[in-house]
């Protein structure tokens, strides 16, 4: 999916847990997420802690969108 959105000319960041799959299928901007059932959360934390985790990931995603890349790039901390 991510590739088709990219192909259409929209910059896109893929927030996903299983980075190797994203790399194999060909996403260009990748932000690693927490876990498959909760990519942007963590039910073992409190709601406010969770939201902080989520905020951090979304900030990273926006940063990825603002970063020029020439090849597949995984945005880690």
């Amino acid at each position: 999916m991510v590739k088709e959105i990219e192909r259409a000319g929209l910059p896109v960041v893929h927030v996903c847990t299983i980075v190797p799959i994203s790399l194999t299928v060909g996403a260009n901007r990748i932000v690693p997420a927490v876990a498959i059932p909760y990519p942007l959360g963590d039910p073992s934390r409190t709601m406010s802690e969770e939201k902080e985790i989520r905020r951090h990931l979304v900030e990273k995603a926006l940063k990825a969108l603002q970063t020029e890349v020439s090849e597949q790039t995984v945005f880690t901390d």
Partner: peptide, 15 residues
């Protein structure tokens, strides 16, 4: 549809 609606960029999340 996103382009037609003037979207700049996309965040795609996967599980």
């Amino acid at each position: 549809r996103l382009k037609a609606d003037g979207v700049t960029a996309v965040i795609l999340t996967s599980t």
